[in-house]
């Protein structure tokens, strides 16, 4: 079996590389908690390239407005149609912000409407169990961004599985630290990332 490679999606319009430490942190958690063969480094892949089709999970984040090019839309549609999963995180943790508005508009055009993901969804039990839904981030609890806690994630479904998982919780900031510093946490805050990876690989 080939090893899992964490892929970050590059797109033309925004700061796609605003969370450079998230991939290493997620990889560390996947390696730490699971026996999934995982590559030690992530990869950046252009969303307008067919290379994006090689990976089961794409991570997309940023602060700036998201306007996909036609090529990016086409590749993303093919990616989702082939069973890929796109995890989008609003680095602004701001539900009324430009990233949220533009990204949800673009994603709805490609993947269909984004709806609230019920807290009983299998994603929250794919590896660790999160009975209260998506874990809150310190940015939300500290009142940053729009000073709101966003209790639910949004998702676009492809059949009965998630094709696009959309978060306003700013996991990009929450998980944006060197994995060696994970030892200072009493509870690893990247455990939900493991659920996302396991769900993308097994559903």
């Amino acid at each position: 079996m080939s090893e899992f490679i964490f892929a970050t999606a590059q797109y033309e319009s925004g700061d796609w590389d605003s969370a450079p430490l998230v991939p290493a942190n997620v990889i560390d958690s996947v390696a730490r908690y699971t026996s999934i063969p995982v590559a030690p480094v992530g990869i950046n892949v252009s969303l307008s390239s067919d290379d994006a089709l090689r990976y089961p999970l794409l991570y997309l984040t940023g602060h700036l407005p998201v306007r996909f090019t036609q090529a990016e839309r086409q590749v993303l549609a093919r990616f989702l149609g082939r069973g890929g999963m796109l995890f989008v995180d609003d680095h602004n943790h701001d539900i009324d912000g430009a990233f949220h508005k533009t990204a949800t508009e673009e994603l709805a055009r490609v993947a269909g409407p984004l709806v609230k993901l019920p807290r009983t969804h299998g994603l929250y039990r794919a590896f660790f169990v999160f009975p209260d839904g998506p874990p809150n981030t310190s940015h939300e609890l500290n009142g940053w961004g729009d000073n709101l806690i966003h209790p639910d994630l949004l998702a676009a479904m492809h059949g009965d599985r998630i094709s696009v998982l959309y978060s306003n919780k700013d996991y990009s900031s929450e998980w944006g630290y060197h994995p060696d510093n994970k030892r200072f946490f009493s509870v690893d805050n990247t455990r939900f990332a493991v659920n996302i990876v396991v769900y993308a690989l097994t559903s």
Binding site: P20, I27, A31, R32, S35, I36, P40, A126, T202
Partner: peptide, 27 residues
């Protein structure tokens, strides 16, 4: 330049590979 490239030491993270965590069954 770019942000420093972090290479995760998988065997070290896995405590020399002795961790036998099993992921969910694949469908």
């Amino acid at each position: 330049g770019r942000a420093p490239r972090v290479v995760v030491d998988i065997p070290r993270v896995r405590l020399q590979g002795k961790d036998k965590g099993v992921p969910s069954a694949r469908t």
